[in-house]
Amino acid sequence: MRNTLHVLLASAAAVAAVALPGSAAHAADGYDRCPDGSYCMFSGLDGTGDMIALTSSTPDLGALGMNSRAKSDWNRTSSTIYLWSGNDYTGCTTVTSAGPTGKGNFFPDYRDFFNSVQFDGPGGPSCGTPPGGDG
């Protein structure tokens, strides 16, 4: 009798565990994957694809698998971000500001273009405004 009761209780517990609805947490996607306080780069447009989250200057994005691969970004820091065309903060720079304007797709000429990221400058020679990027 004791073994039968034990088997019945174990079976009831198993059924209850299966019958209870699981609380499925919504996984962040797109730009929402970027943690607060980080500067994030994405290999796809609109925050899709692979993502890296930076909290300090990074002289070689290749070490993180993002060298010349980023197509969009989000600056969730209080810093001005300087994006360099070359490794070790060489070449030309563009700026990603903090705040609501620091999120979006790169102009087509700047997709798959950047190789290092510097927090708070001083920056370098401007890469200029890409064609069609002034409006």
Rank of each mutant, 00 (worst) to 15 (best):
G86N: 14
S72W: 05
N105A: 00
T48D: 13
V15W: 00
G128A: 06
K71I: 00
L83K: 04
D73F: 13
L45A: 12
G49Q: 07
S38C: 01
T77M: 08
S79D: 09
P100Q: 06
G44T: 06
V18E: 02
T58P: 12
N87D: 11
M41K: 04
V95W: 13
G47S: 03
R69S: 09
D60Y: 10
C40M: 05
C127R: 03
S116W: 02
D50E: 15
Y31G: 06
T55C: 08
K103E: 14
G102F: 11
A27K: 07
A19N: 01
I81S: 10
F113G: 04
P100I: 02
C127Y: 08
S85H: 07
G62R: 07
K71A: 09
T48V: 00
A53C: 10
P130C: 10
C92V: 05
G86I: 04
Y39W: 07
M66I: 08
K71F: 03
L61D: 04
S78T: 12
G124C: 07
Y110I: 09
P59F: 05
G22Y: 13
G47M: 14
D32V: 08
V18R: 08
M51V: 12
C127M: 13
S23F: 10
P130Y: 09
L45P: 00
G99D: 09
P35L: 05
T77V: 12
A63T: 15
F119D: 13
F114L: 01
G86H: 10
C34F: 06
L54T: 14
D36K: 09
G47I: 06
T48E: 15
R33K: 14
G62E: 01
A19L: 13
D36F: 08
C92W: 04
P108W: 05
F114P: 10
N105V: 05
Y39C: 09
S72C: 06
S126V: 08
S68C: 10
T80G: 05
T48M: 07
S85R: 13
S97Q: 14
D32F: 09
N105H: 00
Y89W: 13
D88W: 13
W74P: 03
G86A: 07
A27Y: 09
Y39M: 07
T48Q: 14
C127N: 00
I81N: 11
V18W: 06
T90D: 09
P125W: 04
K103W: 09
S85W: 06
T58G: 03
S56Y: 00
T58V: 09
W84V: 06
T96S: 15
T90N: 12
C34K: 10
L64R: 01
K71C: 00
A70W: 05
S79P: 06
K103Q: 15
S72V: 07
G104V: 02
D50H: 12
G65R: 02
T90H: 06
G121V: 02
D112W: 01
S97T: 12
V95C: 15
V15S: 02
P35Y: 02
N67P: 04
G104S: 01
A70P: 15
T77C: 14
